[in-house]
Design a protein around this nucleic acid. Sequence first.
DNA 1: TGGAATTGATAAACCGGTATAGCTCCCGAA
DNA 2: TTCGGGAGCTATACCGGTTTATCAATTCCA
Lengths: 338, 338
Amino acid sequence: MVRPTIADIATRAGVSKGAVSFALNGRPGVSDATRERILKIAEQMSWRPHSAARALGASRVDSVGMVIARPARTLGVEPFFAHLLSGVQSGLSAESISLQLLIVEDTAAEIEVYRRWASEHRVDGVILVDLTVKDPRVDELKALELPAVVIGGRGGKGALASVWADDRDAMLSIVEYLAALGHRRIAHVAGTPIFQHTQRRIRALRDAAPRLGLLDAPSLTTDFSDAEGAAITRKLLSQSDRPTAIVYDSDVMAVAGLGVAMEMGVSVPGDLSIVAFDDSILTQLMHPALTALSRDTFDFGRQAAEVLLETIADPATVINRRTSDPVLTVRESTAPPA
Amino acid sequence: MVRPTIADIATRAGVSKGAVSFALNGRPGVSDATRERILKIAEQMSWRPHSAARALGASRVDSVGMVIARPARTLGVEPFFAHLLSGVQSGLSAESISLQLLIVEDTAAEIEVYRRWASEHRVDGVILVDLTVKDPRVDELKALELPAVVIGGRGGKGALASVWADDRDAMLSIVEYLAALGHRRIAHVAGTPIFQHTQRRIRALRDAAPRLGLLDAPSLTTDFSDAEGAAITRKLLSQSDRPTAIVYDSDVMAVAGLGVAMEMGVSVPGDLSIVAFDDSILTQLMHPALTALSRDTFDFGRQAAEVLLETIADPATVINRRTSDPVLTVRESTAPPA
DNA sequence: TGGAATTGATAAACCGGTATAGCTCCCGAA
DNA sequence: TTCGGGAGCTATACCGGTTTATCAATTCCA
């Protein structure tokens, strides 16, 4: 049995194609009785719209895209993307819009993908992650007139729509907690400085340091890898006036740091408190389990999808939506300093 | 500047739409000179095919789909999917075919997605993962006449195309290594028995046990979660004749098991050897680092993409391709028994 | 040298929907 | 009685490609 088209339905119902189209899309132009009849026949023949045909007439393809520009090996360890994806999809599924996912090596390749998608009409809009300082993707997407929403980090004035969490507040909640425990030497093992969120976290710590009476609060940047996380930790713990607490920008680095501490005979949380700026099953698998900042990543994705759909519907208004604040989940890796 | 269509190119070149189509698709019907001229103009106008229009005429959409039916929280910890995805994409990108990814809760939802995709012509084919015993998806896909390739596990006779690694050999390489070290009490913390690969691993161990002179080689099934992995480990290590080596079906469970061992004062690898049936950064972050079975997941995905494209091109011939064998990466968690 | 085969191109149909102009019928108001 | 207008529907153009039937001009071969 071949797939039925609206022409088949029209024949069966004894009406024109146009009438069927009106009925199926709930637009005026047919009587309620006829509409009812057509819908019933469509149901019986299990008709489904042909996505390409629909995309050709109207100019929407009911599909959005997401490109992640990271080498594959650093992906995946983080549940972040899996949760984000699920969230995005739950936001899209309501409208039965599909998602195209692409993992590429770098930003240049990512921009290439946007160009292709735009010119081939493959997506109605895209979701951006990992916004960097002076991100070239923003201008490119504006030039392509491709609706987009940025996850994490306001785009700035006249920029793209966005969904963001307050990194500044998040960092404050961590260091204020550590300061309240009595820590005065806090180090921050940060990610790459090209990411806007890294910058915001670094600035937040620097600004808060004097107020909290911190003696020392260095932020050391890395490439987010476990290797660099471990190396920096080794350096920090070798200093004569070593920190009593370290904040890591990712859970993987925090775990690597914990390993270094154990290897150097530094007890956690006795001699050193550890906080991860991102939560996952990883932090819970450790002994001691790591205190971590938990974000509702699923909801993050869901809201991004919603904002994107609104942006596609009305490209003129730029939405900047702030999501729920992350909360600090205290586990076993933090305690007052010795 | 609006996007150019082949009609625009035709006008500029002073030929018909048909001629342009022939030229752009490298089919006979135009002279080399004309073809050259048309291609140059298309290049100048930076023409790209409108994917929907192409999909409507021909019956291919240059897009394949992949549905992962797992609750989001158990996803993502494993680099497995990230690597697999990258591999699939590298296999697809050569033909510039795009990938639709969907994460759903269960198999029922997954089948729903296949039905929708098939009826809406959204994909040319799909890639299946996590094949279960008597998997309902196989029959469904055959009924929908949707080309598909199964990753991991031959589909059996008259079934779908597949790309698979030899789980049996892999399990053997692990237990033979452990037996050679002198272990005679080996336990296997397996995944869910509904997965075919779980079954194959269990059987491989059971069959090999007598030959290797193993005193005891129980396989205990779990739901792949860290919680159950930990619980089973606790039980195993509490026995009077506890195993001297444990093989875990996933890296997450192996890490959880390592945590339990440390918590119970069982030294690894002194009193207990641990092997993970899957490698990732997780196993390397641990102290001791875990001995694990490494598979070339990227290549796995790449080959799956290739096989799928061949299946789409010629649905009649069913390909069953065996990939490279996994290798055992020995690290610090295995040693001769005390 | 004449008819057949080949080459290079065109015009038009087609894919499955959406959008729109227009037609018919009926009701109500001037 | 006529005209206006809306409801309900049809016919048709259109979206941007692919494909097929057709045709003229040229080449080939007996």
